[in-house]
Amino acid sequence: MINKFMADKLIISFEEYNRTVEKLAIEIHKKYNPTVLIGIMRGAAPIIDILSRILKLPIAYIVIQSYSGEGMEDKQGELMFAREISSLANNEDFNRVLLIDDLSDTGLTLNKSIEWLKNYGPTKSFIKEVKTACLWKKKSSSFEPDFCPVKLENDPWIVQPTEHYEELTIEDIIKKNNQG
């Protein structure tokens, strides 16, 4: 099921990623009937795209940035939320929310996002229920998502299929595609 371990890294292929999202969709379909999917950006972007197509649901996004400061790049810092949810969903769609992230690492992002969402002015009076979903839960995470197809027995760095783009420049991509 899980592709390769390299040191403390878990390398996920596109094929494995899509299969895991499909397993998540099946789990959600069997146990919950959400009225809107809310993705935590950036990690949830591809997940929410696929789930919204499978489950035929409206989507919304919240943007969160973790600021750690200089010398703390690998540590989670204070979470900063964008001012608004980005969505074309109607307020009434926010009745049964499924909040989605790519993984539950420490659990802090999901916990704080639920709290922020329940206090978000424009939709808070419409929210009756918030459930959570992610693809992977690390062993040391203190958060238990409602839906999660892969619960890891350790805490590897998860290398997702698009992550290599963070190391590339547009010039690298132009050169690779021979488009000078």
Rank of each mutant, 00 (worst) to 15 (best):
I158A: 02
E27V: 00
S113W: 02
D146I: 02
K139G: 01
M72F: 15
G39A: 09
L135I: 06
E73K: 15
E70M: 10
I158V: 13
E167H: 02
K138N: 05
M6F: 06
E22C: 08
L57W: 00
N111P: 00
I38G: 08
N18M: 10
I62Q: 14
F126V: 01
P34T: 01
Y17R: 03
S66K: 12
K75Q: 13
M80C: 02
S66G: 15
E22I: 08
T162Y: 08
E163A: 11
P156T: 03
R42F: 04
Y120K: 13
I26A: 06
G39P: 06
E166G: 11
E144K: 12
L24W: 01
W157C: 00
K56A: 06
N3V: 07
Q76C: 00
S140L: 12
V63H: 14
L135E: 07
E70G: 09
I50Q: 14
W157K: 02
L108H: 10
A89T: 09
V63D: 15
T20A: 12
A89C: 11
R19T: 05
E167C: 00
T162N: 12
E115M: 03
I85L: 15
T123H: 12
K75E: 13
N111E: 15
I114H: 03
E171F: 03
I2G: 11
F126E: 15
L110C: 03
D172M: 11
F14G: 02
S104D: 01
G39V: 05
G39K: 08
Y165E: 10
I64D: 14
I28G: 01
G121S: 15
N18D: 07
I50G: 02
N177G: 02
K118N: 14
I114N: 02
G39Y: 03
W116Q: 08
P46W: 14
I28T: 05
I59N: 07
W157P: 01
G77E: 10
N95M: 07
I114L: 09
M80Q: 08
R19K: 15
I59D: 01
L110Q: 11
S140Q: 11
W116F: 13
S142M: 07
F81C: 03
N177C: 04
I127T: 07
P46F: 14
A44Y: 03
P149E: 08
S140Y: 06
S13C: 07
S87F: 09
G39C: 08
F94P: 14
E73N: 08
I28V: 14
T169E: 10
D172F: 09
I62Y: 09
Q179A: 14
E92G: 02
T106K: 03
N154K: 04
T20Q: 06
F143S: 03
I26F: 04
N3F: 00
S86N: 12
I114Y: 04
Y17I: 01
A7E: 12
T123D: 02
V159R: 02
S140D: 12
N178H: 13
T169I: 04
M41T: 11
P58Y: 11
N111F: 11
T169H: 06
K176Y: 07
I173S: 06
T109V: 05
L135N: 07
Q160I: 00
A25C: 05
P161I: 01
L98Q: 04
I114M: 13
F5Y: 10
F126C: 09
L57F: 04
Q179T: 09
S125C: 06
G107Q: 05
I64H: 10
G39T: 06
S125I: 04
L55A: 07
